[in-house]
Design a protein around this nucleic acid. Structure first.
Length: 575
RNA sequence: CGGGGCGUAGCGCAGCCCGGCAGCGCACCGGCUUUGGGAGCCGGGGGUCGUCGGUUCGAAUCCGACCGCCCCGACCA
């Protein structure tokens, strides 16, 4: 590409709307421009990088036997009603009507569409396994898009779906994706790690996320440095146990606590530490109100609660609580509510002695609560949020808690969708069985943003050869000596002929401008062609990654460049 | 959806408190000079001051409603 002809609107100043590094740099480097909240235009250089990422993903999906398809983003709402997800997604799904007033949706993902194809076309276990994938715009009306390409309302996703006739088959398809994803992120030069994850609304029996550590990330993960344990905080657990005590039992008593509602207020008022409290929260699940108990100094993990309460889970409203229990939020507790409301307690409260909690009467709490005696919960579960430094459940060493960006997510869906949509095949015994499905996603824009978050400096982006819009730029400095332009042209044509992707900065601007732009754009390599060096028969080469600059005889320059490129590619080659 | 901030030339911003000619820097156009880290000088073009309504002799400025964008939180396949 000759930059004199390129559409490359770079910015010297940082747009005021951008906060995170990748967003600032994608705007400054002219990769993207905003259209509205959470929706971006991809400009030529951004699209170049996206296509490179897409090609890497495509090669790896083909490598595991995936077949590329292209499924509609415009869907009839009925198909989403078959699985109940039209309502599960709620207002996160875009709805629209056609000219005949038929209700349509913009697809946020494609499990339902895959099922609708499979139930019509796939008859026998002999046709399985199948892996179908696509690159497609996904639409999700996020309540709060943010951080540029990290969370958007429309984005390109590689989504794939595996179809098998039994769970052993699913395991294989899942493992193939696991391998493909590791190769993809390695090839993109990303320092990823894999964590156990929540399946959330997707359902199914298991899922893993591919993460990259970054303060810009919206996910929090517990990671063990001593063993391979790593989990999204949504599902992470630790080996922490309630310390057993032989303290003397104090008698059960109701005490007035006028106007004191929060654990902090009541603990101060009663002279107890927050860990001596049982915090009682009320949620609404698929089957009505549920009381959830956790130690006063800890936080309930709503992701862990979701599978226990159902997809419609939400915190209860104040008046719902008042109606059932007769006390306001702040004075709630499990004592005396057995049989009246389902009570789920965190494992850590087992055998807890001498605790304080709400009395279910305004302005009163109770003390001397012996868990298991004063009251018995209906269920025990791990519903707490793991904190930094707690012992790893695998090896006992302290866990680290880190912020991370979710690059990809793989799910074992099982039969949730195939059952709901009657997508079945005949098995070996001639019996109808529902397809056993997996679903697997990578956000392309997020992948690019993560790569930039991971590799950038004060001067701009640092692309790896794998994702760079162009792997090398020829910075042609202006000169009256025609040899400079001729040499730059010659190198441009020669490199292109050798299959390199190359940009020639032949714009009529000053040298400083070109150098700044080259660093901002993040080409892995720069070739500076100037009169000053050329009179000595030299070129200057610069490697963006570490800023290394060398002046080298023109005849030796290509050899050096080739070596640098091979080194760069070696860094992103899977084992 | 709750809290906060913002909306003035393509971009970054000042002016608003205390109402009275709509400004600055960059970018853009023309000219001259300059040419190894985002040039200098001279000249020039570009604005429904987010929208609608109100107060006022007069509104970018004060008041109200709405719209949009960003941040924090809630939420997030």
């Amino acid at each position: 590409m000759r930059l004199s002809k390129a559409f490359l609107p770079t910015l010297k100043e940082v747009p005021s709307d951008a906060v995170v590094t990748s967003h600032k740099l994608m705007l400054r480097a002219g990769l993207i421009r905003p259209l509205m909240a959470g929706v971006y235009n991809y400009l030529p250089f951004g699209q170049k990088a996206a296509l490179k990422a897409i090609q890497i993903v495509r090669e790896e999906m083909d490598r595991i036997g995936g077949q590329e398809v292209f499924l509609p983003m415009l869907n009839p709402v009925e198909i989403w009603q078959e699985t109940g997800r039209a309502s599960d997604f709620g207002s996160e799904m875009f709805h629209l009507r056609d000219r005949k007033d038929r209700e349509l949706v913009l697809a946020p993902t494609h499990e339902e569409i895959i099922c609708s194809i499979a139930r019509n076309e796939v008859r026998s276990y002999k046709e399985l396994p199948q892996i179908w994938y696509q690159f497609q715009s996904k639409f999700r009306d996020e309540p709060r898009p943010r951080s540029g390409e990290l969370r958007t309302r429309q984005f390109i996703m590689k989504d794939s779906y595996s179809l098998d006739s039994d769970s052993e088959g699913l395991d294989k398809s899942y493992d193939l994706h696991d391998e493909a994803y590791r190769r993809i992120f390695k090839r993109c030069g990303l320092d990823y790690f894999v964590v156990g994850a929540s399946s959330g609304l997707m359902g199914g029996s298991g899922s893993e996320e591919f993460m990259i550590a970054s303060d810009a990330g919206e996910d929090t993960c517990a990671v063990c440095d001593s063993c391979d344990y790593a989990a999204n905080l949504e599902v992470a657990s630790s080996a922490l146990k309630e310390e057993t005590t032989d303290e003397k039992v104090i008698p059960f008593e109701k005490v007035p606590t006028p106007g004191k509602r929060t654990v902090e207020e009541v603990s101060q008022f009663l002279g107890l530490t927050p860990d001596r409290f049982i915090k009682s929260l009320v949620f609404v699940g698929d089957d009505g109100l549920v009381m959830v108990l956790i130690r006063g100094d800890e936080e309930v993990n709503e992701s862990k609660l979701l599978p226990l309460l159902g997809a419609s889970m939400r915190p209860a409203e104040a008046d719902e609580v008042l109606k059932l229990i007769g006390a306001e939020i702040g004075y709630l507790g499990p004592v005396g509510l057995e049989g009246k409301i389902r009570i789920i307690a965190d494992n850590r409260l087992k055998d807890a002695k001498n605790r304080a909690t709400g009395a279910n009467e305004n302005d009163h709490h109770v003390i001397g609560v012996q868990v298991g005696e004063t009251f018995k919960p209906d269920e025990w579960a791990d519903i707490r949020t793991v904190k930094e430094g707690e012992p790893c459940s695998n090896c006992g060493e302290p866990l680290n808690v880190v912020q991370a960006i979710e690059l990809g997510h793989i799910f074992k869906l099982g039969t949730k969708y195939s059952k709901a949509m009657k997508a079945t095949v005949l098995d070996k015994d001639g019996k109808d069985v529902p397809l056993v499905m997996g679903s697997y996603g990578i956000g392309i824009g997020r992948l690019l943003a993560a790569a930039i978050e991971n590799q950038a400096d004060n001067n701009g982006i640092i692309w790896s050869v794998a994702l760079a819009p162009y792997e090398v730029v020829i910075v042609q400095l202006k000169s009256k000596n025609p040899e400079v332009g001729d040499t730059a042209d010659k190198w441009y044509e020669n490199l292109k002929e050798k299959g390199w992707s190359v940009a020639l900065d032949d714009r009529d601007v000053r040298p400083g401008f070109k150098f700044k732009d080259a660093d901002l754009l993040g080409y892995p390599f720069q070739i500076v062609v100037s009169e000053r060096n050329l009179t000595e028969g030299n070129l200057e080469l610069k490697r963006r990654r570490d800023g290394l600059k060398i002046v080298i005889p023109e005849e030796e320059a290509f050899e050096q460049l080739l070596k640098w490129r091979e080194e760069d590619i070696a860094l992103t080659t899977p084992d």
